Simulated assay, not measured.
Amino acid sequence: MYKLIAIDIDDTLINDHKEVTPATQQALEDAVKAGVVVTLATGRAYASANKIARQTGLNVPIITYQGALVKNLLDEKVLYERYMPIDAARKLFQYCIEHDLHLQTYIDDKLYAREENQKLKDYAGLNNTQYHIEPDFEKLIAQPTPKMLIIDEPAYLDELIPVFKELLGDGVHITKSKPNFLEFMHKEGTKGAALTFLADHFGCDLSETIAIGDSWNDHEMLEVAGLGVAMGNAIQPLKELADYITASNNEDGVKQVIEEFVLKAK
């Protein structure tokens, strides 16, 4: 019997119109009524994720910044937090300056970049996020951040991954949330580490958890969960490691999982 469900937001919980459909909303409510803890697990900042969580009526800790921050919705108490190592952040910043790469960071749940450009505008528009410009980026690098992010062409980012792994060392977790977003966190800032923490927090075994996602940044939580679910619209590598493939985000795939594995089992 499953006791905890962790659901990715973009292209998983929400459809292509950025909405949680009434049918999926009803399924979430039915799962909660059945005594299951339903949480979100996202690469988004807490400020962005909590708006969606509140809309859906959830009132639990949520996993944000890929797993670098787990925070209560009710009292906003931080339960789990991992910051990018400062030395690695400096090296990443320096590399981006030298190679003219667009780098973003988050300080106190606010999005910062060195300059305003189309990449930043498009990203902020995608997540409905405010951004701040700080030309003196050195000031920001010295402060704790749960996540840094480079935006560029997918193939170029793929080439950069081994370069950054060597440059930054094994204290840093590198993942792609979308093809053109390369994200950097503390090595324990993964959705899998955060789900493991939350399962312990709620007193349930990982075998009693479900994780649902669509992108490669979801693979750690699908691997540790008792039931790892890939959306119908998920990338192929995630489908290959999933225990179950549900319908797409435009076909209420999350609802299907809840009905099949939570409500039918009751």
Rank of each mutant, 00 (worst) to 15 (best):
A49N: 10
E19C: 13
Y46K: 10
T145H: 12
L28K: 06
E76R: 08
D136A: 13
L79E: 09
A113H: 01
A23T: 13
T175M: 11
M231D: 04
I52H: 03
A47P: 02
G203H: 11
K91S: 09
K121P: 00
G67L: 08
K264L: 07
V172G: 04
E81M: 11
D158C: 06
I62K: 14
V172K: 00
L120F: 06
R44Q: 05
A225S: 11
I14N: 10
L4I: 02
D152Y: 01
I5T: 03
Y112R: 01
L198A: 04
T190D: 08
A113F: 02
C204A: 11
A41E: 04
E183C: 09
P154D: 07
A45M: 15
K239L: 12
Q94W: 01
T105M: 14
L182H: 13
I7M: 08
E19D: 14
A27F: 10
K3L: 04
E223Q: 11
S177P: 11
D100R: 13
I151H: 05
H99Y: 10
E183P: 06
D152Q: 04
D87T: 05
N50R: 15
A47E: 06
E208I: 03
E138S: 15
A34W: 02
T105G: 15
H99I: 00
V163K: 15
D10A: 13
A27C: 09
Y2Q: 05
V60A: 05
Q26A: 14
M185T: 13
P22C: 02
G226W: 00
F164Y: 08
T190H: 09
I14E: 09
L79A: 09
V32L: 13
Q236N: 04
K119Q: 09
E98C: 01
G171F: 00
A89R: 06
G171N: 12
R54E: 14
F164N: 00
L40M: 07
I97V: 15
E138M: 10
E98L: 07
A265W: 01
A124C: 14
A242Q: 03
A53S: 15
T209K: 08
L206T: 11
S207R: 09
P179Q: 02
A234K: 06
G169Q: 08
T56F: 03
G169A: 12
I210D: 05
A230F: 06
L69F: 03
T21A: 05
Y65A: 08
K110M: 12
Q256V: 04
D100T: 07
S248N: 11
M1R: 05
I97R: 15
L101R: 15
